[in-house]
Amino acid sequence: MEKTHKNTLNYKAYIFIWVALMELTILSVAASTVDFKALAVGIALFIALTKSFIVGSYFMHLKFDSKIITVMVLITLFVFLTFIILTFVDYSFRTSIV
């Protein structure tokens, strides 16, 4: 039974995390009203990645569960990142796109 309660965050902690996510949401909406030009996508993605990191670590318990799951998540993200990089390299070097 010991293991049953080990991974539990208390309610307060979840509410604290919820507040943090709300603040980041407001921040990303606020950032969109400023014209950051080319940086806008980067800023929006950075905030979204931060929010996902918080959801993953605390709501999805990656911080408290066995580390092997975190490793699996990182491998998946690495695979996805590879797809992104290869696709963009491909498109950047094409000369005959419409």
Binding site: S28, A31, S32, A44, A48, V55, G56, M60
Partner: peptide, 22 residues
Amino acid sequence: GLYWHLVDIIWIFLFPLFYLVH
């Protein structure tokens, strides 16, 4: 819960990309 959080994470990316970044 994990499934629900994933649905949330997907929206966390859909929202800025479609609605916010112009």
